[in-house]
């Protein structure tokens, strides 16, 4: 085997090992996130638009449907430390970008002792494509995560 081929094989092995290590780390992080999510079986896991937070969102009873006050839970984790809920604030809103308007009710948000948030009274009053905004407030920043949902 030429030294050139040997170097190539060593490089390939290094790449594979690096890939395994990366996958393992990613998996570990995901496991930590899931562990932090605990019993809150996430309907969706979304990363905030700035990449700083990971949010686990449970599905409202009956799903995201039109014309019904929706309630769901949100757990906010730091992307760089997904082992426990972040001590942050949360604001929730919804919008229809194609129609240039939002929702006509103000959601209620309660922070529980375990660090999760209970969101109630989110109301999607029209059929179509909605963006549900989950704004994480941690002074001096407010960073958005969002869910795109379609209701009939």
């Amino acid at each position: 085997m030429s030294s050139k081929n040997l170097r190539a094989r060593i490089a390939a092995c290094a790449l594979v090992l690096a890939g395994i290590a990366y996958a393992s780390a990613t998996s570990r992080a995901a496991t930590q996130e899931n562990a932090a999510a605990g019993e809150h079986a996430a309907y969706k896991t979304v990363r905030s638009n700035g990449g700083r937070y990971v949010l686990h969102v449970t599905e409202p009873e009956g799903g995201f449907v039109r014309g019904k006050p929706l309630a769901f839970d949100v757990r906010v984790l730091r992307a760089d430390d997904p082992t426990q809920p972040a001590t942050v604030g949360l604001l929730v809103d919804a919008d229809m970008p194609e129609h240039l308007h939002g929702t006509n009710r103000v959601p209620r948000i309660e922070r529980r002792a375990d660090g999760t948030f209970r969101v109630e009274n989110l109301y999607l009053h029209m059929p179509g494509w909605w963006e549900v905004f989950l704004d994480v407030v941690e002074s001096p920043w407010t960073e958005r995560a969002q869910l795109r949902v379609e209701v009939e």
Partner: peptide
């Protein structure tokens, strides 16, 4: 897509 806002005095 809105990413984040910075309250400058904070």
């Amino acid at each position: 897509k809105f990413v984040r806002a910075l309250q400058l005095d904070e």
